[in-house]
């Protein structure tokens, strides 16, 4: 089956990012396809490369980045949600005249159309959140 995943809650604050990761990993292990992972609302904070969680805890950005690398996952961060929350890649940094950026290279910033497209293209859109 072809899945798309939407994540609506922030990392560590809420289990949604963990549950989505475990779901994605299990689905891929079973030979299913993940069309796209779309980070929305506070979920966009998962994409920061600057988080330093305690060493004995999981690092959600790293876990997703490793999974993405292994399976060539398309991980999209919503641009509108990202702008509100101070998440920027180099292009967004320059476009908005900011002095820093923080997006991990495993993620890319794009628009909400990518979420709708994922809903159309996938057999199932799984929403993780409250």
């Amino acid at each position: 089956m072809k899945f798309a995943i939407q994540i609506n809650e922030g990392p560590y604050q809420h289990q949604a990012v963990d549950s989505a990761y475990q779901f994605a990993k299990a689905a891929l292990d079973k030979g299913h396809e993940i069309f796209r992972v779309f980070f929305y609302h506070d979920g966009v904070n998962t994409a920061t490369r600057l988080a330093v969680p305690p060493q004995d805890d999981r690092n959600l950005t790293k876990l997703w980045a490793e999974l993405a690398e292994q399976h060539n996952l398309d991980m999209v961060v919503c641009v509108a949600a990202a702008q509100r929350r101070g998440m920027a890649d180099e292009d967004e940094m320059k476009r908005n005249g900011k002095d820093a950026n923080n997006i991990h290279p495993a993620f890319r910033i794009s628009g909400l159309g990518q979420l709708i497209e994922a809903g159309i293209a996938a057999d199932r859109l799984m929403v993780f959140g409250d």
């Binding site: 929305y40 509108a80 628009g111 159309g113 709708i116 497209e117």
Partner: peptide
């Protein structure tokens, strides 16, 4: 915001 963007599809 999703509804408004999604309307274009």
């Amino acid at each position: 915001e999703v509804v408004l963007i999604g309307a274009a599809f």
